[in-house]
Nucleic acid binder design. Structure first.
Lengths: 223, 223
DNA sequence: CCTCCCTGAACCAATATTGAGCCAATTATT
DNA sequence: AATAATTGGCTCAATATTGGTTCAGGGAGG
């Protein structure tokens, strides 16, 4: 019957925490109580709580209990939490800042193998027959360009954006804005970016990427 | 039952995935459940899911289950973890990308009150007598400019950078590169940025910020 | 007949959960 | 001050879940 109960419990606990439960003294119930409340073994609750501990949402003390971490607005966890509320408009603005730069870096720094990986992602996306496959390889195309940029921090920022774009509000939006025609346009725009990369032309790569993102923004936000 | 059941099931699964099903924890039901739900043998479901795996839409783990690649819930933490290894050179590269843009946004979007806050941070930094105080208000100056940018995501990215810059390797580096003369230079460069902001001149603000960051990079990395 | 795909079943290997027990740190009670 | 109760940290063996693999058969179409 049970399947990956621990992570389910972890998310349930997160929900209850963020809904203000246990905030009065900042202390969670003992693991043994939670175990019987959820009807699982204590070991399972322990694994769930250690997820929260890894998140930084909680701290444990032997003999004392498990406590919610003070909501420090400048902690990593808090930053990530606030990022989850990013609006599509803000996101697109930053993409138009970062991705052209990443494309320019890539044109300068990429190895032949890395460029091949970009080309391959473009090829699969172009030949894909259904939206989910296209979605995936479209994202992979962009990601591989960041991977060529030789700036690990930039790459990770893009990972963040990618994760955010795969969450709630984006999903609806992408589905709504998708059409066969637009897919074709995206592919040809990708082609222009790819060509610039292969020519090792940073300026053109940057411009082509910016043009592409403007198209995406227009389709997504209807401007 | 018609032929090619496996690929039919594969496309059905893709549809359900792209319509947001199972996105909450990114985990698909076990193959045995899917088999009975679709009324087919598990082997058939397995081949269907292998298509998704080839697509890259899904990853399978023995004993754990099948997971959507797009929605890896724990990967936020992983990204942040990897960011902690960011090199100063990479960081400065991205700062030179983001901060001039933030300054330009600020020149356009800031309210008078927000600009006052920027001015105040600059004033305190200029008048500070010791390095830690200057450090703090220097950082605050930059932060308040991001706060004016009206792009919450950009603001949070800067928060991330700020946290990273307050960790181990940076501390040493900043201390080593600090001098009274340099502090004076930073302050006058800040003044130029601030003036451009007060004039509501995005182009000058952006240029002034870039010039400042080039100075910082030269001092920090010794280039 | 042969080929291809699906069925049904069995078994394997990796992982998760259980349930129990004991330890160590802390707090409450006597 | 001493003792008991509470609570997180940890281990272990048994059981359950789940993807990985194989095999024998059935039915549809060439």
């Amino acid at each position: 019957m049970p399947k990956l109960v621990a992570s389910d419990i972890a998310t349930a606990l997160k929900k209850r925490i963020s809904s203000g439960e246990w905030i009065e003294n900042g202390r969670m119930p003992p693991e043994r109580d939670l175990a019987s409340e959820f009807g699982v073994a204590r070991n399972t609750v322990r694994r769930a709580v250690s997820f929260l501990e890894d998140d930084g949402t909680v701290v444990r003390h032997v003999g004392r209990g498990t406590f919610l971490t003070a909501t420090n607005p400048s902690s990593m966890a808090a930053v990530v939490g606030r990022m989850e509320g990013t609006s599509p408009a803000d996101m697109m603005e930053i993409r138009q800042l970062l991705e052209p730069a990443a494309a320019a870096f890539a044109a300068t720094n990429a190895s032949a193998m890395e460029l091949n990986a970009v080309r391959e992602a473009h090829k699969i996306a172009s030949e894909s027959q259904d939206m989910p496959t296209f979605e995936h390889w479209d994202a992979e195309f962009h990601h591989r360009i960041f991977a060529c940029s030789r700036n690990d921090f930039l790459k990770e920022i893009h990972n963040l954006m990618r994760i955010l774009r795969n969450q709630a509000p984006w999903f609806e939006m992408k589905k709504r804005s998708f059409s066969e025609e637009r897919r074709g346009i995206y592919c040809s725009e990708h082609q222009i970016v790819l060509d610039a990369l292969l020519r090792r032309d940073p300026e053109s790569a940057s411009q082509a990427m910016l043009a592409h993102l403007r198209t995406v923004e227009r389709n997504l936000l209807g401007r």
